[in-house]
Simulated scan of single mutants.
Amino acid sequence: MSPQVADSVRPRRAGRLASGGAIREAAAAMFLENGYQGTSMDDIAAAAQVSKQTIYTHFPSKEALFADLVLGNAERVEEFVATVSRTVAAAGDDMEGGLRQLARVYLRLVMQPDVLRLRRLVLGEAGRFPDLARTYYERVPGRVINALSSVFSALRDGGRLHLDDPQLAAQHFAWLILGSPLDRGMFYPIAEPMPEADLQRAADGAVRVFLAAYGSSR
Rank of each mutant, 00 (worst) to 15 (best):
A47K: 07
A89L: 04
H162D: 12
M95S: 01
G179P: 03
A26N: 06
M95F: 00
G185Y: 05
A203V: 11
A14Y: 03
R13I: 13
R100D: 12
L107D: 12
A213L: 13
G159A: 02
R24W: 01
V88M: 00
D43C: 02
E78I: 02
M186Q: 13
A82D: 10
A18V: 05
D131N: 08
G38F: 00
A213M: 11
P113E: 05
M194H: 00
G205D: 04
E192F: 10
R156T: 06
F59L: 09
N146M: 10
T54V: 13
I44E: 00
R10H: 08
G35W: 01
G185F: 05
H162I: 05
M30S: 15
V9D: 09
L71V: 09
V110P: 04
S150H: 13
H162P: 02
N73W: 08
A82K: 02
T135Y: 02
F173P: 13
A154G: 13
L17Y: 14
D165K: 08
H58Q: 14
R184I: 15
W175S: 13
R143C: 07
Q4N: 05
V122R: 00
V207G: 03
A26W: 15
I177N: 15
F31R: 01
E192D: 14
W175P: 03
T87R: 11
R13F: 10
A18P: 03
A133I: 07
L99E: 10
V207M: 06
E96C: 03
G205N: 09
A90I: 05
F80Q: 03
L121N: 00
A46M: 05
Q49K: 09
Q101L: 08
F187R: 15
P195M: 11
I190H: 14
W175V: 07
V105R: 15
G72M: 05
S51R: 06
L32M: 09
E196A: 13
A26C: 06
A191W: 10
Q200W: 04
S51Y: 05
E78T: 12
L109H: 14
L178Q: 15
G158A: 12
L182Q: 12
G92W: 09
S180W: 10
V110A: 08
A18R: 15
D7H: 11
E79P: 00
M1T: 14
M194Y: 06
R24M: 02
A29T: 13
R139F: 06
T135H: 09
A133H: 05
P130Y: 00
R156D: 06
L109C: 04
T87G: 03
Q37M: 07
P166A: 11
A48Y: 03
E96M: 04
I145A: 13
